[in-house]
Amino acid sequence: MVPDTGTNWLAQLRRGVVEHCVLALLRDGERYGFDLARSLAESDGLLAGEGTIYPLLTRLRRAQLVESTWRESTQGPPRRYYRLTPAGERALLGFRQEWQRFRDGVDRVLDDGGAL
């Protein structure tokens, strides 16, 4: 095994976090892959590339946190629209609560080495 080489931790961090960002983007209704990728890519550093959203959407679909429907599009081929399942809504809620604690904890340690 090669030890982590600088950017590996970023990939691991993204994996857990970005999935929940996708769930958050679906909070207000269904969206399609291209649209989701562009929205996420606007926040710098969240995606390694817009194309990485598709494996991620597959993972969410398999975990039954989102479901998808194909719809005709006025421009171009049919699009696959994603929306939250009840399990996805619960996962998003749980993440929001934990994330705040987690982020505050990391910030505190980074800012002053954890001194109180």
Binding site: A48, E50, R62
Partner: peptide, 17 residues
């Protein structure tokens, strides 16, 4: 470039499931 390096997409896909 925005779509990303094929290797990054592959890395994301290989972690699926």
């Amino acid at each position: 470039d925005r779509v990303g390096a094929p290797e990054d997409i592959a890395a994301a896909a290989l972690g699926e499931g």
